[in-house]
Design a protein around this nucleic acid. Structure first.
Length: 469
RNA sequence: GCUCCCUUCGUCUAGCGGUUAGGACGCGGCCCUCUCAAGGCUGAAACGCGGGUUCGAUUCCCGCAGGGAGCGCCA
């Protein structure tokens, strides 16, 4: 049997980080077994579904490289099929028209709650004699009232439900549109989904869906219900925990593989291994090893992982997203050194591409933003002479390379009777405007000769030693 | 309220009857060092509680407590 899984988001908002983890595990399962991965857009709620949300979902999945083999299917384009299946159930006596009004249902629910009972439909229309004038009926499914339904969950193990706990759920609304449960069942059946991997908020819905699947004559899929991802404080993941929209992670300068790697370790592990390539994930992932308990999202660990990926990535391949970061930070990527060189110099001291863009602004223009406190501390009269000397020596340096720059700096420091650091830090402040940057020779190499000399000269006036030397 | 699920360091997790309970993030210390990092070494830090079963329970069973989900003409 060929494995076929699916990801079936509803386009009522952006692609949520929890949804991505569900998609990832479903995708991994299909890929691991050499199966198929289907994308289906569950847009039966026409009020809340938007094209913008569909685009965001497609965008997010594409960015992460979670490719699908079939779809995207849209439920709104399959209404005829749902109607056909609904008619069949009605004809076969497996469904019936219910004329209870929303108001009646609501009142009964309130009564049941007041009595301490589980609110559910009492099935009274199963035996109603005829239509009620003026009331557009819904179609309800005839759910067994006795016996137990067993879900053999790939993640949870065996879970039993008393059928008496279930009620006759609505298949088709009074306006003729299918409900979520009905759409899911018909779609999974028609599309030949073999493994339903989804969030554990659906575990309780599974037995009722299983009954519908049997009634429709489809094969039962295997189920795997994944635990939730919570915010850092254990509450439901929401905006206040930081980004929940995947695309925000792209905007913040995270790498897709790092995000996937972080997510795959939420609820799953392979011994002590922390870093997995895409191929390793596919090869090693096993749904049976997935934890049943919810986990919390830890942005710090994501940042750490992202840096690991930054450090081992091919810098040239990061040029495009890095250029985007520079633009967002207000810099012109063309006004500085090649992206790959900057990334290489900075990736040991930054967790994201955005961090790099925010640290390396001095490379992208002629002006530096001088940190006054740093200038007061490091650009002192005592180093004025050495800085002036350095400017002269660097001006005549044959080749502008870090090696040559380093030699000159060592030589100038020695001549001035200074330790390398006593010269290096003032130079750093002069050239970058701050106290933090890559190794000073690398920094100067990136800044370039012209700007370095101009900035050293400008710094001399701050040291109060005039032209010095 | 009813039904279902979950419970190892702060967090992510390894463990699948006998371990000094391991790793990772974060946090502290030391080393390295021109700054910041990165890296290396190192320290503190966990089996929710109560009953069983067993020679022996973190591990199996049952309660309890705590957390979560579901109970819509939402998905």
């Amino acid at each position: 049997m060929t494995v076929k899984t699916r990801f079936a988001p509803s386009p009522t908002g952006f692609l949520h980080i929890g949804g991505v983890r569900t998609a990832l595990f479903s995708w991994l399962y299909a890929r691991h077994h050499g199966g198929q991965f289907v994308l289906r857009i569950e847009d039966t709620d026409r009020e809340r579904s938007t094209q913008a949300a569909v685009d965001a979902i497609l965008d997010g999945l594409a960015w992460l490289g979670l490719d699908h083999d079939e779809g995207p299917y849209y439920q709104t384009r399959r209404f005829d099929r749902y109607a056909e299946q609904a008619d069949r159930l009605l004809r076969e006596g497996k469904a019936y028209r219910c004329y209870c009004t929303r108001e009646e249902l609501e009142a009964r629910r309130a009564e049941q709650m007041a009595r301490g009972e589980k609110p559910r439909y009492d099935g009274r229309c199963r035996h109603r004699a005829g239509p009620v004038p003026g009331v557009a009926p819904v179609l309800r499914f005839v759910t067994p009232t006795e016996g137990v339904t067993v879900v053999d969950d790939l993640v949870r193990g065996r879970v039993e439900f008393q059928n008496a706990e279930l009620d006759d759920l609505i298949l088709v609304r009074s306006d003729g549109t299918p409900t979520f449960h009905f759409g899911v069942v018909v779609d999974d059946g028609d599309m030949g989904i073999t493994h339903v991997i989804r969030g554990d908020d659906h575990l309780n819905n599974t037995p009722r869906q299983m009954h519908m699947i049997r009634a429709l004559g489809y094969h039962l899929p295997a189920y795997g219900h994944l635990p939730m991802i919570l915010g850092s404080d254990g509450a439901k993941l929401s905006k206040r925990h930081g980004a929940v929209n995947v695309l925000e992670y792209r905007e913040e300068g995270f790498l897709p593989d790092a995000l996937l790697n972080y997510l795959v370790r939420l609820g799953w592990a392979h011994g002590d291994q922390e870093i997995f390539t895409r191929e390793e994930m596919i090869r090693l992932f096993d749904i049976a090893g997935v934890n049943a308990s919810a986990s919390r999202f830890d942005g710090e660990k994501l940042r750490w992982l992202n840096q690991q990926y930054l450090k081992s990535a091919d810098p040239a391949g990061l040029a495009a997203p890095f250029a985007e970061q520079l633009k967002h930070a207000g810099f012109d990527p063309g006004a500085g050194p090649p992206a790959a060189a900057v990334i290489e110099a900075y990736r040991e001291r930054a967790a994201t591409l955005r961090d790099i863009a925010h640290s390396a602004g001095y490379l992208y223009g002629d002006r530096v933003q001088m940190d006054d406190a740093a200038a007061r501390k490091h650009l002192t009269t005592a180093v004025g002479g050495a800085l002036a000397q350095l400017a002269v020596r660097l001006g005549s340096l044959a080749e502008w390379t870090r090696g040559g720059i380093h030699e000159v700096m060592t030589s100038v420091a020695t001549d001035a009777g200074l330790g390398f650091g006593k010269l290096g830090q003032p130079v750093r402040v002069a050239v970058t405007g701050g106290t933090v940057s890559p190794p000073i020779d690398v920094t100067l190499e990136l800044v370039g000769r012209k700007r370095t000399l101009a900035r050293l000269t400008a710094a001399l006036s701050l040291t109060g030693s005039g032209t010095g030397a």
